[in-house]
Design a protein around this nucleic acid. Structure first.
Length: 255
DNA sequence: ATGGCGGCTCGCAGCCGA
């Protein structure tokens, strides 16, 4: 079972990259973030023609999440208790016996901003949701654009990012608390290149200089993590013309 | 070096992202 996540930064623009990537990698499940499409405009037919079912929760201009899969998605959730939020950032579904929780965690702008407080409040509600999902599901993945770099090792210039959004103690504490709930960061189950990142700024030739952050993650519940065979970041799509600023992350499981 | 890039919008400049 191959499970992937990719912030595509506009599915309209990136659809050719996504279709090519599906063809090449044949993941069983691909979670997308920042589709930036209302549901009426979702390219369901093109994706179906590629051999994938799609479920999606979008809005105009911003945010938007979707799950593409070779198997039917059941028990779909796009809104969670105690979080009334017009921003479409959450999609949970059960696919081939695995509970997939796809998240586009808010960026947070700056520590002083209302958006940062929104991020922390949002994370608090989602933490409760995940804790509850653990009661009813054994095999869970929590995937997506976390907008959290868990450790300094996940940041090319940690001294520059110290205390900034994506790297604050409060955000990192949430990430750690999810591990404590009963998850593994599948990327860190394996030997990796020292400077492994999943996002690079479009500016300043950041990708060429490998100035990035690892903020896209695949967490697997402890039971499922036992079956994890690999987790990698595919940098190839970031080299294409008009790329997303994020790279896909792929984990493979013996299930 | 506080810019830079890219996507979006009842666009022509300003927002949001990370």
């Amino acid at each position: 079972m191959k499970i992937a996540t990719w912030n595509v930064n506009s599915l309209k623009v990136r659809l050719p990259h996504v279709l090519d990537w599906l063809e090449a990698w044949q993941p069983d499940i691909l979670a997308l973030q920042e589709t930036k499409l209302i549901d009426d405009n979702f390219p369901a037919e093109e994706i179906r023609a590629a051999g994938y079912e799609a479920v999606y929760s979008g809005q105009k201009t911003f945010n938007g999440v979707a799950i593409l899969s070779k198997f039917k998605a059941l028990d779909i959730v796009t809104d969670i208790p105690d979080l009334e939020d017009p921003q479409r950032r959450i999609m949970a579904a059960t696919i081939a016996g695995i509970r997939v929780i796809n998240l586009y965690i808010p960026n947070g702008s700056t520590v002083e901003s209302d958006k940062y407080q929104y991020k922390l409040d949002w994370l608090d509600k989602v933490t409760n949701f995940i804790a509850n999902e653990l009661k009813s599901h054994q095999k869970i993945v929590v995937v997506g654009d976390y907008n959290i770099a868990p450790e300094d090792i996940d940041v090319r210039e940690p001294e520059k990012w110290a205390g900034q959004v994506l790297c604050t103690d409060a955000e990192r504490a949430v990430f750690k608390s999810w591990l404590t709930l009963g998850f593994k960061d599948t990327f860190r189950l394996f030997d990796q290149d020292e400077k492994s990142y999943s996002w690079w700024d479009y500016r300043m030739l950041a990708f060429r200089r490998n100035r990035g952050l690892r903020i896209d993650h695949i967490l697997a519940s402890n039971v499922l993590a036992e079956t994890c065979q690999s987790c990698i970041i595919d940098k190839e799509p970031r080299k294409l013309e008009r790329p997303s600023d994020h790279a896909p992350v792929i984990a493979e499981f013996r299930v």
